[in-house]
């Protein structure tokens, strides 16, 4: 009898609905980069919907150079222990063993991230093989649909991490959201050629046309440093924001984190935005994307 009951329940983990569902619960929220448990607790107390564990924040990766990898598993485990909100962690592009390790550690989502040094210059991780969801970066609709085709359950703009310059996040959000709008009015006979041009799976192109949106949640990331930056991207139509170096490289991380959380909820209310933006202390030291050399941008990693 108990066996029969169990069978009729048909319990399944790692289904598409379960993987895509987690990011749906994070919408309208802020996901913050942290390098240790202490920062994770500050982020949680400030109202982050999730934290992203990585070895060094992007601004330090830029400044220090060298190969950037998955965090020390002991640090990841300590972060998982320290907070009740979901924990994400970054693995290198194509490094499916780092991803396997992160899944074992009990993280809730993996970011296959261009912020770390790519482990494979040809192939991304087959994300459909994992039980937990993946988030990936994209600069345009074709790249987003390739990652979703590989099993990504959440997308984010690449932006240009570690700069505090929001211009690339804006560019990528406009590219993706604009392409989706244009696709909705594209005649059906043009879809296959369009899919070929942008290098995207045809079935996903068709689905985006029908639904007028990506089949997964789409956040902004890469260069968001102020409450106004977060609200800008939210008004443009993203589902939420990632903030990397912008918080823990600023003068008052806790206060800035809280302000960005409030700005992400009340993104359409300039009075509240003005109020929460007051007296936040020094923002992170910025680095304009235009000042970067052709090989210094992180967004060009991945394809």
């Amino acid at each position: 009898m108990p066996t029969e009951v169990k069978e009729s329940r048909n319990v399944k983990t790692g289904t598409q609905a379960v993987k895509r569902g987690l990011p749906q619960m994070l919408k309208g929220g802020v996901i913050m980069d942290v390098v240790n448990a202490e920062q994770a607790k500050i982020a949680e107390a400030a109202g982050a919907v999730a934290v992203m564990a990585l070895e060094r924040v992007p601004a330090d990766i830029r400044a220090e150079g060298g190969v950037s990898r998955m965090s020390d598993p002991a640090l990841v485990a300590a972060i998982v222990e320290s907070v009740s909100i979901p924990v994400m962690a970054k693995c290198r592009i194509g490094h499916f063993v780092e991803a396997q390790i992160l899944e074992t550690l009990g993280v809730d989502c993996i970011d296959e991230s261009e912020v770390l040094t790519p482990a494979d210059e040809e192939y991304h991780v087959d994300k459909s093989k994992f039980t937990i969801p993946f988030v990936c970066g994209a600069r345009n609709l074709g790249e987003a649909l390739r990652r979703i085709g590989e099993g990504a359950a959440m997308m984010r703009t690449k932006g240009e991490a570690g700069t505090g310059d929001v211009v690339e996040a804006v560019r990528h959000a406009r590219a993706i959201l604009g392409a989706i709008k244009r696709l909705t009015i594209m005649p059906d006979e043009e879809l296959m050629t369009y899919a070929k041009e942008i290098g995207a799976p045809y079935e996903l192109v068709k689905k985006v046309k029908e639904e007028g949106k990506l089949p997964v949640v789409n956040f902004a990331a890469g260069g968001i440093a102020t409450p106004a930056d977060a609200a800008l991207l939210m008004q443009m139509g993203v589902d939420g924001v990632f903030v990397g170096s912008g918080i823990f490289k600023s003068g008052n991380p806790q206060k800035r984190a809280e302000a960005i959380v409030k700005a992400t909820t009340y993104f359409n209310n300039p009075e509240i935005l003005a109020e929460v933006s007051k007296n936040l202390g020094e923002p992170m030291v910025g680095l304009t994307v235009k000042s970067l050399g052709p090989n210094e941008t992180l967004a060009q990693r991945g394809w």
């Binding site: 009729s8 329940r9 048909n10 319990v11 399944k12 983990t13 790692g14 289904t15 609905a17 379960v18 569902g21 987690l22 998982v80 009740s84 979901p86 924990v87 899944e103 009990g106 993280v107 809730d108 989502c109 039980t131 937990i132 969801p133």
Partner: peptide
């Protein structure tokens, strides 16, 4: 809260 564990234990059931 989080009674069933982390995301890898999230599930669907009839």
């Amino acid at each position: 809260r989080n009674a069933y564990g982390p995301q890898k234990a999230s599930f669907e059931a009839d």
